[in-house]
Every structure is written in structure tokens, then in C-alpha cells.
Design a protein around this nucleic acid. Structure first.
Length: 156
DNA sequence: GCCAACGTTGGC
DNA sequence: GCCAACGTTGGC
């Protein structure tokens, strides 16, 4: 399977790219996917070695700020069984875990973050899911061409 | 803080 | 299986 590309959203006030770079091994488990479409993508399509655009949402300047790599494919999210977690799911069955997560490692920050405004005004990026009205999916597919364009805009 | 868009839930 | 109510997301 050829390498694919994704865009993962995170609220920087909760977990920023900077936080990821400071994490052990620059790696984190991508917590909190609680949407079936996103879950199915994690389960079926996101593979080790895939590229991930780290996007900051719900903040002053929404932007793609860094590049990551998927280092571990989907496995059961332990938080669904942890009463104390904000991601606890009372109805999750340990025998058949409902929610999954993958691990991602920071590769590098973009020298120049690529802002939502820039994405909107770049014709090569006009078809990104991000720009679809009302799109709230936290895990979105990105084409190879879009990946390249973002890298370039970001100064790589 | 507002509000549009969308997913999920639950009554019927 | 429909659909209204509700909760959440996320740009502004």
C-alpha cells in the first residue's frame, strides 16, 4: 500500500504541535476520536508510514503547523474504559472495543505555518475537505498533490 | 459568545 | 425508519 496522507485536527489549547514535539520520542497516541466515520478511517485506512498534517483548530489562527508520521496502526483506545477519562464511554465493551487510536510522531514543524486563509486562497488546495462547509471530521484524507503544496507553502 | 452545520439519540 | 431535539464543532 502506497503512503497516504491525512490531516488531523487538534485544538492547540488542548494539545498543540509544540506539545507533541516535547512528548517522549516526539510521539503521542491520538486520543479522543469519537466519531464513527473518523474511527472507521483509523481502522481501515490509516497505515504505518502515512503522512499527517497537524492542524490547529478552534484558535486565533487556524493553520497546518507541522508534519507527522503514523508510527503505530489502530489499536483499542484504553481511555474508553477509564472512568476518570474525559473520553470514558460507559457503553464500550472490553471484549469488543468501540474506539481506536493510532500513534503519531512529529517529523518537523513547518517553518511557516500554512493558515486556513492561505489554504482558502490557494487553488491547488481548493478541494481540501477542510474547506467543505460545516466539515467537522477530525481526520481527513489529503491527496499527494495537496501534501506537496502544503509543504511548499510551509517553506519546505 | 454566536451561530450554522452536522452527528447522535430516542420517541413514535 | 422517520424526524425533532439536543450536543458538539469550529470559524468568525
Amino acid at each position: 500500500m502506497a503512503q497516504r496522507f491525512w490531516l488531523f485536527k487538534s485544538e492547540p489549547s488542548v494539545f498543540s504541535f509544540d506539545d507533541l514535539e516535547k512528548s517522549p520520542s516526539r510521539t503521542t497516541s491520538w486520543e479522543g476520536v469519537r466519531n464513527y466515520q473518523a474511527r472507521n478511517r483509523l481502522r481501515d485506512e490509516v497505515k504505518r508510514g502515512d503522512g499527517v498534517l497537524f492542524y490547529h483548530s478552534s484558535c486565533a489562527v487556524p493553520a497546518v503547523v507541522g508534519l507527522c508520521t503514523v508510527v503505530r496502526e489502530a489499536y483499542p483506545d484504553p481511555h474508553q474504559f477509564d472512568r476518570k477519562s474525559r473520553y470514558y464511554d460507559q457503553t464500550a465493551d472490553p471484549a469488543e472495543p468501540r474506539w481506536l487510536l493510532v500513534d503519531v510522531r512529529a517529523e518537523r514543524a513547518l517553518p511557516k505555518p500554512v493558515t486556513l486563509d492561505q489554504i482558502k486562497s490557494t487553488s491547488a488546495l481548493a478541494k481540501m475537505d477542510l474547506l467543505r462547509r460545516g466539515n467537522r471530521l477530525s481526520i481527513q484524507p489529503v491527496s499527494a498533490a495537496e501534501w506537496k503544496a502544503i509543504r511548499k507553502l510551509g517553506g519546505l
